[in-house]
Design a protein around this nucleic acid. Structure first.
Lengths: 219, 219
DNA sequence: CGCTAATCTAGAACAAGTTTCAGACTTGAT
DNA sequence: ATCAAGTCTGAAACTTGTTCTAGATTAGCG
């Protein structure tokens, strides 16, 4: 049975591990632990890429990442935590990718819409993964708030980046929040087959008009 | 153990029961079946009003509504189906209530915002119930699409009612869809404690501006 | 080296959603 | 009144998320 029992650890130490994105202050992980965490996230994304939310089964994740079930739960206290962390991971990657080629639109609204559509196209390439991540995100309860918030901040950063707005006004931030709402909800309707890709595009473009409404001067 | 086994049925007949809202064409239910359906929905709402999503446990719903577990599943093929049907039920009620006192705002945007805030206040009175319904709604997968769509149509009807708009343009319908997106997503952030009531209010008011953007002439 | 605390592992156990089944009851038709 | 089909019940079984436990391993430290 021990398919992965021959890892032979060498370092460890912290008491509580939690899901982080980049490097917020927290108990530092040893490289071995960092490697475990990475294996877990990789397995999670991999399983999600096939069957979506349902295909990410904790026992399978544990096995694929060569970690005991109990250990998996020590790293990620629930399936939702795991998938939200997976999303953090993917989002980071996405943000990096998007940064490289900034959108071309004239107005801030156009640039934001273009950026979101770019992200959308990326998600379309892995619809099952998108399903798992988005479903987890919206299903998350209070116990996952910090992690979901982190995802939200990351998303906000991406949008603000696209706007090219250094210090947005409160009004603009409201618009950005509404855009995020629309983004998540539109993804859900698409993932559950209740809206077409074209529909999502229209919704995004529609909501992005709010930006021009709150920030007449593009640059 | 048979706590509810003494009902002694007298009528029945259809083969497949599905969740409906008002009266779409489908296998007509006998009064006895209609009564069962009603008991189930009532139990569902009751349990949801306490602990929210998690408190709605299928075994408990079955027991509270004096129906065998298998029967519950015949009426509602999953917990999600049940909760979405519960939402349909509540929404209908809500729509009736809202109809009575139409919003007072000058512009369509104001009226819609006022209506949604009214609905929001109603939800605040039963936050657990709101939690159960909204979580189910956004977590629903393709197998629940018809029912979720029905909820969506009902919501759209409420918003169009508030707009006082008889035959909306495609642009306006887009705006309405975006408003619904924002509505759902904002509710979620509130329910999971990531946004305050005030925050939700702002988001609603912000997104409602889109209406004036697409329909300059109020009436 | 030898000790102590923390971590990891394998596996059992538990909880709640879902499925399945045999049998009792109802219904509608003959 | 009787029969065939469909429905409901009670209970067990199965699935997957989550928790718990005992023991092996490792790390940090004198």
């Amino acid at each position: 049975m021990p398919a992965e029992a021959k890892v032979s650890a060498k370092v460890n130490k912290p008491a509580k591990v939690e899901a982080r994105a980049a490097a917020p202050a927290s108990p530092p992980l040893t490289e071995r632990q960092e490697a475990r965490r990475r294996r877990i996230l990789h397995a999670s994304a991999q399983l999600a890429s096939r069957g979506g939310f349902d295909a990410v089964q904790m026992r399978e994740v544990a096995e694929s990442s060569q970690v005991a079930l109990g250990t998996l739960y020590r790293y990620f206290p629930s399936k939702i935590h795991l998938l939200v962390a997976t999303m953090q991971d993917q989002l980071e990657h996405m943000h990096g990718t998007l940064r490289k080629k900034p959108p071309q639109g004239e107005t801030a609204a156009e640039r934001v819409a273009e950026t979101l559509m770019r992200a959308f196209r990326a998600l379309q390439r892995e619809p099952h993964l998108a399903d798992a991540m988005v479903r987890a995100l919206t299903f998350a309860d209070r116990s996952v708030s910090p992690e979901v918030d982190q995802v939200s901040r990351q998303t906000t950063a991406i949008i603000l980046d696209a706007m090219g707005q250094e210090n947005p006004t409160p009004e603009q931030l409201s618009a950005v929040r509404v855009i995020e709402h629309t983004w998540h909800s539109a993804l859900i309707t698409w993932l559950s087959g209740r809206a077409s890709i074209a529909q999502v595009k229209i919704d995004i473009e529609t909501v992005c008009r709010l930006i021009d409404l709150t920030a007449p001067a593009p640059r």
